[in-house]
C-alpha cells in the first residue's frame, strides 16, 4: 500500500475509535457536571447495551433500525433507575465513596451479564457490516464511517438539545447551581435522574456502534479506560472536550502503533493520560478554581 492510503485509513480508523471514546467520555461528562459523580460503570453500560442489542437482533429477530432505538430506551431506563435507587442516597458523601459505588455497580453489571449471557464473545449483523465505500483511491469500511457519521449527528442533536430545549437548559442550570435551579422551580431531582438517563443512552449508542468492530464481549467495558484518557485530555466535565479528547486519543493510538512502536499501541492512550495529568491537569477545555479557606 502506498503511504497515503495507509495514512487515510489510519485517520479514519483513528477517528472511528476516537468517536467511541468521545461518546463514552461525553456520557460521564454529563453526569459529572450534574452531580460530581464520576460513573466508573459507564463502560459497563456500553457493554450491557451491546448485549441487549445482540439479544434483540439475533434472538428476537428485530431489524437493526428497530433494535437500535429500543436498546437506547432500555439503557435510558437503566440509567434513570441507577440514579434513583443507588446513586441518589450517597450524594454528599466524599467523592471516594461515589467512585467506589460506581465501581460496585460496574462489578455487579459485569457479573450479571456474565451470568446471563455466558463468557463467549458474539457478533450481530448490521446494515454496515462487511461493506466498504471507495473514496478516491482509498477503501473505507462502512462500519467506521457509520460510527463517525452517527457521532457527528449525535453531537449536533445534543448541542441543539442543550441550546434550545427546556430540559437541556434545565440540566445545564441544575449542574451549574443546584440551589438556584431549585429555587427557580426546576425539579432538580428529576432533572438529575434524566441526566443519568441521557448519559446511559449515549453509552448505548456508543455500544451499538462499537459492537460490529469489537465483538459483543464482557471485555467491552475496558473502553472506559480510553474514555478516561479522552476526558482528561479534553478537560474533565467539558462536553466538547470529551469529543475532541476522544478523537485525539483515537488518532494517537493508531499513529503510535504504526509509526512508533507496535507494542506501545495498547498503552499510548494511558501514557498521554498520565502526561496530561502531570503537566496540564485542566486539559484542553477544563476550568480551574482554588479552594477557599
Amino acid at each position: 500500500m502506498d503511504p497515503w492510503t495507509t495514512l487515510a485509513q489510519l485517520i479514519v480508523n483513528g477517528l472511528a475509535a476516537g468517536c467511541v471514546y468521545g461518546l463514552v467520555a461525553l456520557g460521564f461528562a454529563l453526569v459529572y457536571k450534574a452531580t460530581e459523580v464520576v460513573n466508573f460503570a459507564q463502560g459497563d453500560l456500553l457493554m450491557v447495551a451491546a448485549f441487549a442489542g445482540w439479544t434483540l437482533i439475533e434472538v428476537a429477530g428485530l431489524p437493526y433500525a428497530v433494535a437500535f432505538p429500543v436498546t437506547v430506551l432500555l439503557l435510558a431506563v437503566l440509567g434513570f433507575g441507577l440514579d434513583r435507587v443507588v446513586v441518589r442516597p450517597i450524594l454528599g458523601r466524599p467523592q471516594f465513596a461515589t467512585i467506589m459505588l460506581t465501581i460496585g455497580i460496574a462489578f455487579a453489571m459485569r457479573g450479571v451479564v456474565s451470568m446471563t449471557w455466558g463468557p463467549q464473545a458474539r457478533t450481530f449483523e448490521t446494515p454496515f457490516s462487511r461493506k466498504n465505500t471507495p473514496f478516491f483511491d482509498v477503501v473505507l469500511s462502512d462500519v467506521s464511517l457509520s460510527i463517525i457519521a452517527a457521532t457527528a449527528v449525535l453531537s449536533a442533536l445534543l448541542f441543539a438539545f442543550f441550546r434550545w430545549s427546556w430540559l437541556g437548559i434545565a440540566m445545564q442550570s441544575a449542574s451549574q447551581n443546584q440551589m438556584a435551579a431549585y429555587l427557580m422551580g426546576i425539579p432538580v431531582k428529576a432533572v438529575t435522574s434524566l441526566t443519568w438517563a441521557l448519559s446511559a443512552s449515549v453509552a448505548a449508542c456508543a455500544g451499538l456502534l462499537l459492537a460490529p468492530i469489537a465483538l459483543v464481549d464482557i471485555a467491552l467495558w475496558l473502553v472506559i479506560l480510553k474514555a478516561f484518557a479522552a476526558a482528561v485530555l479534553g478537560g474533565f466535565g467539558s462536553i466538547p472536550g470529551a469529543i475532541v479528547g476522544g478523537l485525539l486519543i483515537g488518532l494517537v493510538e493508531q499513529f503510535v502503533g504504526v509509526y512508533l512502536l507496535q507494542e506501545a499501541k495498547g498503552i499510548a492512550g494511558y501514557v498521554v493520560l498520565l502526561a496530561v495529568l502531570l503537566v496540564w491537569p485542566r486539559g484542553l477545555f477544563g476550568g480551574g478554581e482554588r479552594k477557599r479557606v
Binding site: 443507588v86 460496585g104 459485569r110 457479573g111
Partner: peptide, 17 residues
C-alpha cells in the same frame, strides 16, 4: 460464571449505602 463478581459488586454497593 459471574456470580462472584455480582456478589462483590452487590455487597460493595450495600456496604457503601
Amino acid at each position: 460464571t459471574g456470580l462472584e463478581l455480582t456478589l462483590y459488586g452487590g455487597i460493595l454497593v450495600l456496604f457503601l449505602l
